[in-house]
């Protein structure tokens, strides 16, 4: 819920989207902080090989369950692996899943939603019923169902999270398309005989982009959380490859040996999810004052 909706029409020269983003993102200290966290984590993920003090997979049986020290800032796990290095490498998985899955879901979901919204009739009915069916299941449950069938692995998890997110995008895209279709400029385009694909690409998509982008941003956090949950349940990233979820899973089995994998990975997930949610909220306020969360 935002008050900007009242303010926007009164601004005489309409500011560009970029300006709006900039003012929103950097107006509140909380948002600046969140952006900073995301920047730091993206940096860490990008330069993991240079930042991680050790190989995240390399084991050492002579230094298992070490507590945090100068050599191992977050200690070691039950295989003598450096916890900090694993969390640093784990950020790659989490961020990749977090960015790729909502993007894929946005593309697929919007395409379905636009088809349903623009053409209506039987197409709309089929797509909407399938989407409703998928929406009936919580995302995590849906993801577990698919992951249980497909098994783990990078692309399988991407696929799983994408499928789990498609219904949301399809819903929003359909509603927006139906609204946009009734605009005079679309009716005009139809009247002068512009071909349907051109209408969709030139007139519909640009006009429904804002809420889709907002949704994608908000769901980056959800995707990171979902990947962590799947890995925690043992159907996401497979060991020995680290992801924040499976670091917690391994750590839980060894909680009496060393609690630091859980604390470290838990803190990382909390921070990143919080940061993406804050930024997502801010972008929503900037781009799409009319839409509340989900």
């Amino acid at each position: 819920m935002s008050l900007i909706s009242d303010a926007r029409p009164s601004l005489p020269p309409q500011p560009s989207t970029l300006d709006l983003l900039r003012t929103t993102l950097f107006s509140k200290p909380g948002t600046i902080f969140a952006v900073a966290i995301i920047v730091v984590f993206v940096f860490v993920a990008a330069f993991a090989p240079f930042l991680a003090p050790y190989d995240p997979l390399s084991q050492s049986m002579i230094k298992i369950n070490r507590l945090p020290s100068a050599a191992n800032w977050l200690g070691t796990d039950q295989f003598g692996r450096d916890v900090l290095s694993r969390i640093i490498y784990g950020s790659r998985n989490s961020l990749l899943f977090g960015l790729i899955s909502p993007f894929c879901a946005a593309v697929v979901g919007s395409a379905l939603g636009i088809l349903a919204g623009y053409f209506g009739g039987i197409v709309d009915r089929i797509i909407s019923r399938v989407v409703d069916l998928l929406l009936a299941f919580p995302e995590l449950l849906l993801a577990i169902l698919i992951a249980a069938v497909l098994g783990g692995g990078f692309w399988n998890v991407i696929f799983v999270i994408t499928v789990a997110f498609v219904p949301g995008f399809a819903r929003v895209a359909r509603a927006q398309t139906m609204a946009a279709k009734r605009e005079p400029y679309v009716e005009a385009a139809i009247a002068v005989g512009v071909r349907t694909p051109v209408i969709i690409i030139r007139h519909i998509i640009p006009n429904i982009m804002a809420p889709i982008v907002v949704l994608a941003m908000l769901w980056v956090a959800s995707a990171i959380r979902l990947e962590a949950s799947l890995s925690f349940l043992g159907i996401g990233t497979q060991p020995p490859n680290p992801s924040w979820g499976n670091i917690i899973r391994d750590g839980l089995n060894n909680i009496f040996g060393s609690p630091w994998p859980i604390i470290g990975a838990g803190a990382a997930i909390t921070l990143v999810v919080l940061a993406f949610n804050l930024v997502g909220d801010a972008i929503r306020d900037a781009l799409d004052p009319s839409t509340s969360s989900e």
Partner: peptide
């Protein structure tokens, strides 16, 4: 949304307590 955000934090805290 709030419960989702706090869930993992709470789970972590329970783990630490244990």
């Amino acid at each position: 949304t709030l419960s989702r955000r706090t869930f993992l934090g709470a789970a972590g805290a329970a783990g630490i307590a244990a």
